[in-house]
Design a protein around this nucleic acid. Structure first.
Lengths: 182, 182
DNA sequence: GTCTATACTCTGATAGAC
DNA sequence: GTCTATCAGAGTATAGAC
């Protein structure tokens, strides 16, 4: 056989994610992805219409992994304050473990970005945990406030603007304030 | 005279900022900046060692403009809750008016990014407003919490993830919770 | 379905004439 | 101090052979 290499969309996405995390968003080129797969760049066009299609798939995969991670760590205890705390901790922890992937997801978010199943589920999970403390099962504005804080904290922490203890203490205080004040 | 065009660093930075805001961060190339100035790209190397030097200057200018804007809008009323509200409103308003510049500043932040005079002043202003409500003049963690919320909200709002009223209401609720809970 | 080959455009950066 | 000319490389994407 002439060209025994067999590709598939899932494998390409997985390779793209790995490349993204090792080389950063600038390093995510079709040439580089193809090279890792032992293939030439044009071959990828058999599976993705263009680069942005591959990027969208990477974003969807990132959301899926984030959801999986948060779900696995944030069981739902009886105490609502504890439940939202666990969710929040899991969220920022994922961003600490896989910053490149996390920021790729958040930066490339387009209007439909959360229309993926994982994106919707994440939002549902957030609404549930916020609802636990505000007794409102569909508390959009409360969820926005908490999500804003979690993402903003993640950005500041990742920017290296502070020493070690600075930002983490801010996390505790901000989260406590939101829980008691919402 | 052969080449009467006279450049200067400040004018180059100003042109770079304008280009950034009109074409986005991808459009910020040395060639494009030079073209707007009616000059060829190599000439810029007489004023900036390389592209990243120009980028740093753009970031510093962005911080300066942000500080100027926030200072102009956030006088310091007697009531501490009002004072921090005005600061917060001015912050997110700037990001709404000049999103490309704001995000360029925040995304390219490196450890020394806030070592510019404007960056330090912004931090001082934030500490002051937070100190007004927590009676702690050097409340680092409180300032981190508020900044995280403001930036995170800005990102979510700019991402277009929500309808019109959704995120703004979240701003009110989150800010109120932080003010009362910190 | 993968390949080679190529077209095209863009980038940052440098050398040397004027 | 600005220019022309050029380098060396990146990128996405397409055509057509096998």
């Amino acid at each position: 056989m002439a060209h025994p290499k067999q590709l598939d969309p899932a494998g390409i996405v997985q390779t793209a994610v790995k490349l993204l995390e090792e080389e950063g968003p600038e390093g995510l080129s079709l040439r580089a992805v193809a090279k890792r797969l032992g293939v030439k760049a044009p071959s990828l066009y058999n599976y993705f219409a263009d680069k942005s299609a591959l990027e969208r798939a990477v974003i969807a995969e990132g959301q899926r992994l984030l959801l999986e991670f948060v779900r696995g760590r944030a069981r739902k205890p009886r105490e609502p304050g504890l439940a939202i705390r666990e969710m929040a901790s899991a969220y920022v922890k994922f961003a600490r473990l896989r910053p490149a992937l996390y920021f790729f997801v958040m930066h490339h978010a387009v209007p439909d970005a959360d229309a993926t199943p994982a994106g919707k589920e994440l939002w549902r999970l957030l609404l549930d945990r916020v609802g636990g403390i505000t007794a409102n099962g569909d508390d959009t504005s409360g969820a926005v406030a908490v999500w804003a804080f979690l993402h903003g904290f993640t950005v500041l922490e990742h920017s290296g603007r502070f020493g070690r203890s600075g930002p983490r203490e801010g996390f505790e205080r901000g989260l406590r304030a939101l829980i008691s004040g919402l």
